[in-house]
Amino acid sequence: MGYVLARPPLAATDDFFGAGGDSHRAMQVLSELVDRYGPQDSARAERMHEELVLAMFDDGTPHALAVVIGRY
């Protein structure tokens, strides 16, 4: 996520929004995560994306996103 913010990579517990991220950049990151780590099944990929959105806006840390990715 750090590359989207033009800064060093975030630590697992760093908050994306606290580090200067905004909702547009958040959606960019989430789309890239689904493309890279998402399941091939489109319905499951959509559910993963929805869970990532919730995790991003509830917590905003790489750790929270990794937990969601780990479920898929």
Rank of each mutant, 00 (worst) to 15 (best):
M1T: 10
M1E: 15
Y3F: 15
L5M: 11
L5C: 09
A6F: 14
A6K: 15
A6T: 12
P8K: 15
P8M: 14
P8N: 15
P8S: 15
P9R: 13
P9V: 12
L10A: 08
A11M: 11
A11P: 01
A12Y: 11
A12I: 09
T13E: 15
D15H: 11
D15W: 08
D15Q: 05
F16S: 02
F16T: 04
F16H: 00
F17V: 01
F17S: 05
G18V: 08
A19M: 08
A19N: 00
A19E: 11
A19Y: 02
G21N: 02
G21I: 01
D22N: 15
R25S: 11
R25C: 03
A26F: 05
A26N: 05
M27K: 00
M27P: 00
Q28M: 13
Q28A: 12
Q28W: 10
Q28P: 00
Q28E: 14
S31E: 14
S31N: 13
E32P: 00
E32W: 11
D35V: 03
D35C: 04
R36V: 06
R36M: 10
Y37E: 14
G38P: 04
Q40R: 13
D41A: 15
D41G: 06
R44H: 13
R44C: 07
R44L: 15
E46M: 12
M48K: 02
H49S: 12
E50Y: 08
E51K: 12
L52W: 09
L52N: 02
V53Q: 12
V53T: 06
V53L: 13
L54N: 10
L54Q: 14
A55S: 07
A55K: 04
A55N: 07
M56A: 08
D58W: 00
D59G: 03
G60W: 05
T61D: 00
T61F: 04
P62V: 03
P62C: 03
H63N: 06
H63S: 06
A64L: 02
V67Y: 01
V67C: 00
V68E: 07
I69K: 01
I69G: 03
R71C: 01
Y72A: 05
